[in-house]
Design a protein around this nucleic acid. Structure first.
Length: 207
DNA sequence: AGCCAGGACTGAG
DNA sequence: CTCAGTCATGGC
Protein backbone atom coordinates (compact mmCIF):
# COMPACT_ATOMS: atom_id res chain seq x y z
CA UNK A 1 0.00 0.00 0.00
CA UNK A 2 2.65 2.47 1.04
CA UNK A 3 4.86 1.65 -1.89
CA UNK A 4 1.88 1.66 -4.23
CA UNK A 5 0.88 5.16 -3.19
CA UNK A 6 4.40 6.36 -3.97
CA UNK A 7 4.27 4.79 -7.41
CA UNK A 8 0.93 6.37 -8.20
CA UNK A 9 2.01 9.81 -7.02
CA UNK A 10 5.26 9.53 -8.93
CA UNK A 11 3.38 8.55 -12.08
CA UNK A 12 1.21 11.64 -11.74
CA UNK A 13 3.57 14.29 -10.42
CA UNK A 14 6.99 12.98 -11.44
CA UNK A 15 10.30 13.61 -9.71
CA UNK A 16 10.27 16.64 -7.45
CA UNK A 17 14.01 16.93 -6.86
CA UNK A 18 13.90 18.47 -3.46
CA UNK A 19 15.04 20.32 -1.28
CA UNK A 20 13.59 23.36 -3.12
CA UNK A 21 16.06 26.04 -2.02
CA UNK A 22 18.14 28.00 -4.46
CA UNK A 23 21.80 27.41 -3.76
CA UNK A 24 21.15 24.12 -2.01
CA UNK A 25 23.98 24.62 0.45
CA UNK A 26 23.74 22.66 3.65
CA UNK A 27 23.16 25.74 5.73
CA UNK A 28 20.47 27.07 3.45
CA UNK A 29 18.61 23.79 3.86
CA UNK A 30 18.96 23.92 7.63
CA UNK A 31 17.84 27.54 7.81
CA UNK A 32 14.94 26.81 5.48
CA UNK A 33 13.85 23.85 7.60
CA UNK A 34 13.61 26.12 10.64
CA UNK A 35 12.04 29.09 8.89
CA UNK A 36 9.34 27.00 7.23
CA UNK A 37 7.84 25.87 10.52
CA UNK A 38 4.09 26.45 10.21
CA UNK A 39 4.75 28.95 7.44
CA UNK A 40 4.18 29.10 3.69
CA UNK A 41 7.34 28.46 1.68
CA UNK A 42 6.78 31.62 -0.37
CA UNK A 43 7.39 33.62 2.81
CA UNK A 44 10.46 31.57 3.65
CA UNK A 45 11.94 32.37 0.26
CA UNK A 46 11.83 36.07 1.07
CA UNK A 47 13.65 35.53 4.33
CA UNK A 48 16.26 33.31 2.68
CA UNK A 49 16.77 35.90 -0.04
CA UNK A 50 17.26 38.58 2.63
CA UNK A 51 19.86 36.45 4.40
CA UNK A 52 21.64 35.80 1.13
CA UNK A 53 21.58 39.47 0.11
CA UNK A 54 22.99 40.44 3.50
CA UNK A 55 25.69 37.79 3.13
CA UNK A 56 24.48 36.00 6.26
CA UNK A 57 23.78 32.53 4.88
CA UNK A 58 26.22 30.73 7.13
CA UNK A 59 26.16 29.64 10.75
CA UNK A 60 29.12 31.87 11.62
CA UNK A 61 27.61 34.98 10.13
CA UNK A 62 24.21 34.34 11.71
CA UNK A 63 25.78 34.13 15.14
CA UNK A 64 27.63 37.43 14.83
CA UNK A 65 24.53 39.32 13.72
CA UNK A 66 22.62 41.21 16.45
CA UNK A 67 19.12 39.87 17.14
CA UNK A 68 17.48 43.11 16.02
CA UNK A 69 19.05 42.85 12.58
CA UNK A 70 18.50 39.14 12.17
CA UNK A 71 14.84 39.57 13.06
CA UNK A 72 14.38 42.13 10.34
CA UNK A 73 15.94 39.86 7.75
CA UNK A 74 13.71 36.90 8.60
CA UNK A 75 10.57 38.86 9.41
CA UNK A 76 8.73 37.74 6.23
CA UNK A 77 8.82 34.14 7.47
CA UNK A 78 6.80 34.99 10.56
CA UNK A 79 7.40 34.09 14.24
CA UNK A 80 10.56 36.12 13.75
CA UNK A 81 11.51 36.52 17.40
CA UNK A 82 11.32 32.80 18.05
CA UNK A 83 12.96 31.85 14.77
CA UNK A 84 15.78 34.30 15.42
CA UNK A 85 16.59 32.38 18.60
CA UNK A 86 16.17 29.06 16.78
CA UNK A 87 18.56 30.04 13.99
CA UNK A 88 21.17 31.09 16.49
CA UNK A 89 20.80 27.90 18.48
CA UNK A 90 21.16 25.85 15.31
CA UNK A 91 24.14 27.93 14.21
CA UNK A 92 25.90 27.35 17.48
CA UNK A 93 25.11 23.65 17.38
CA UNK A 94 26.35 23.03 13.86
CA UNK A 95 29.51 25.03 14.31
CA UNK A 96 30.41 22.41 16.89
CA UNK A 97 28.83 19.28 15.45
CA UNK A 98 28.53 19.47 11.69
CA UNK A 99 31.48 17.13 11.26
CA UNK A 100 29.74 14.46 13.34
CA UNK A 101 26.79 14.53 10.99
CA UNK A 102 29.02 14.12 7.97
CA UNK A 103 30.84 11.11 9.30
CA UNK A 104 28.35 9.28 11.52
CA UNK A 105 25.45 7.12 10.35
CA UNK A 106 24.06 6.54 13.81
CA UNK A 107 20.74 8.16 12.97
CA UNK A 108 19.06 7.71 16.35
CA UNK A 109 22.02 9.32 18.10
CA UNK A 110 22.19 12.22 15.64
CA UNK A 111 18.46 12.72 15.94
CA UNK A 112 18.65 12.92 19.71
CA UNK A 113 21.31 15.59 19.44
CA UNK A 114 19.17 17.64 17.08
CA UNK A 115 16.11 17.36 19.31
CA UNK A 116 18.10 18.88 22.16
CA UNK A 117 18.58 22.09 20.15
CA UNK A 118 16.10 24.87 20.88
CA UNK A 119 13.70 25.19 17.96
CA UNK A 120 14.39 21.80 16.42
CA UNK A 121 11.50 19.41 16.93
CA UNK A 122 10.87 16.04 15.35
CA UNK A 123 9.92 17.18 11.90
CA UNK A 124 12.65 19.77 11.60
CA UNK A 125 15.21 17.28 12.86
CA UNK A 126 14.17 14.83 10.17
CA UNK A 127 14.15 17.54 7.50
CA UNK A 128 17.74 18.28 8.37
CA UNK A 129 18.84 14.65 8.60
CA UNK A 130 17.24 13.76 5.28
CA UNK A 131 17.78 16.77 3.08
CA UNK A 132 20.89 18.38 4.53
CA UNK A 133 22.77 15.19 5.40
CA UNK A 134 21.14 12.55 3.20
CA UNK A 135 20.32 10.23 6.07
CA UNK A 136 17.47 7.79 5.38
CA UNK A 137 14.73 9.05 7.71
CA UNK A 138 11.08 9.47 6.76
CA UNK A 139 9.51 12.85 7.50
CA UNK A 140 6.08 13.01 9.09
CA UNK A 141 4.22 16.28 8.71
CA UNK A 142 0.63 17.46 8.63
CA UNK A 143 0.35 16.56 4.94
CA UNK A 144 1.74 13.09 5.49
CA UNK A 145 -0.79 12.50 8.26
CA UNK A 146 -3.64 13.60 6.04
CA UNK A 147 -2.56 11.50 3.08
CA UNK A 148 -1.95 8.49 5.34
CA UNK A 149 -5.39 8.79 6.87
CA UNK A 150 -7.21 9.27 3.57
CA UNK A 151 -5.32 6.84 1.41
CA UNK A 152 -3.57 4.28 3.58
CA UNK A 153 -6.17 3.45 6.20
CA UNK A 154 -3.82 4.71 8.88
CA UNK A 155 -4.63 6.69 11.99
CA UNK A 156 -3.35 10.17 11.24
CA UNK A 157 -3.27 11.03 14.93
CA UNK A 158 -0.70 8.38 15.79
CA UNK A 159 2.40 9.68 17.58
CA UNK A 160 5.17 10.87 15.28
CA UNK A 161 7.54 7.95 15.69
CA UNK A 162 4.75 5.39 15.40
CA UNK A 163 3.70 6.71 12.01
CA UNK A 164 7.29 7.09 10.94
CA UNK A 165 8.00 3.48 11.83
CA UNK A 166 5.11 2.30 9.66
CA UNK A 167 6.40 4.14 6.61
CA UNK A 168 10.02 3.21 7.12
CA UNK A 169 9.12 -0.42 7.76
CA UNK A 170 7.39 -0.63 4.38
CA UNK A 171 10.11 0.88 2.23
CA UNK A 172 13.79 0.35 1.46
CA UNK A 173 15.99 2.58 3.63
CA UNK A 174 16.87 4.97 0.84
CA UNK A 175 17.30 8.70 1.43
CA UNK A 176 16.48 9.57 -2.17
CA UNK A 177 13.28 7.55 -2.04
CA UNK A 178 12.23 9.09 1.28
CA UNK A 179 13.00 12.54 -0.03
CA UNK A 180 10.96 12.05 -3.17
CA UNK A 181 8.06 10.52 -1.25
CA UNK A 182 7.83 13.44 1.12
CA UNK A 183 7.99 15.92 -1.74
CA UNK A 184 5.35 14.01 -3.69
CA UNK A 185 2.98 14.01 -0.72
CA UNK A 186 3.36 17.76 -0.51
CA UNK A 187 2.71 18.24 -4.21
CA UNK A 188 -0.30 15.94 -3.94
CA UNK A 189 -1.78 17.69 -0.91
CA UNK A 190 -1.31 21.16 -2.29
CA UNK A 191 -2.72 20.15 -5.64
CA UNK A 192 -5.58 17.82 -4.73
CA UNK A 193 -5.58 16.16 -1.31
CA UNK A 194 -6.48 19.39 0.44
CA UNK A 195 -7.52 20.01 3.98
CA UNK A 196 -10.75 21.52 2.81
CA UNK A 197 -11.58 18.51 0.66
CA UNK A 198 -10.52 16.09 -2.06
CA UNK A 199 -9.93 17.15 -5.62
CA UNK A 200 -10.34 14.86 -8.60
CA UNK A 201 -6.95 13.18 -8.34
CA UNK A 202 -7.47 12.71 -4.64
CA UNK A 203 -10.78 10.95 -5.19
CA UNK A 204 -9.31 8.86 -7.94
CA UNK A 205 -6.42 7.64 -5.83
CA UNK A 206 -8.59 6.94 -2.80
CA UNK A 207 -8.89 3.26 -1.94
C1' DA B 1 -12.89 38.39 6.84
C1' DG B 2 -11.19 34.29 7.83
C1' DC B 3 -8.54 30.29 6.88
C1' DC B 4 -4.37 28.31 5.88
C1' DA B 5 0.68 27.58 5.59
C1' DG B 6 6.04 21.75 5.23
C1' DG B 7 5.87 23.40 13.96
C1' DA B 8 7.91 24.06 18.44
C1' DC B 9 7.71 25.61 23.03
C1' DT B 10 5.52 26.15 27.45
C1' DG B 11 2.54 25.21 31.20
C1' DA B 12 -1.40 22.54 33.12
C1' DG B 13 -3.99 18.61 34.07
C1' DC C 1 1.37 11.97 27.53
C1' DT C 2 -2.23 14.92 25.62
C1' DC C 3 -3.95 19.48 25.13
C1' DA C 4 -4.65 24.49 24.57
C1' DG C 5 -2.40 28.85 24.12
C1' DT C 6 1.16 31.40 21.94
C1' DC C 7 4.02 33.02 18.30
C1' DA C 8 3.47 36.47 13.00
C1' DT C 9 3.68 36.96 8.13
C1' DG C 10 1.39 36.88 3.61
C1' DG C 11 -1.67 34.72 -0.12
C1' DC C 12 -6.07 33.61 -1.40
Amino acid sequence: MIRELFDRLFAIYGGQHWWPSKSGTRWEIIAGAILVQNTAWSNVEKALANLEAADRMTAERILTLPDEELRELIRPAGFFKAKCAYLKAASSFFLDHEADFLKSDDIPALRRQLLAVNGIGKETADDILLYAFKKPVFIIDAYTRRAAARHLHLDGTLPYEALQKIFMGSLPQDADLFGEYHALILAFCKNSCKKSGCGEICKQIMR
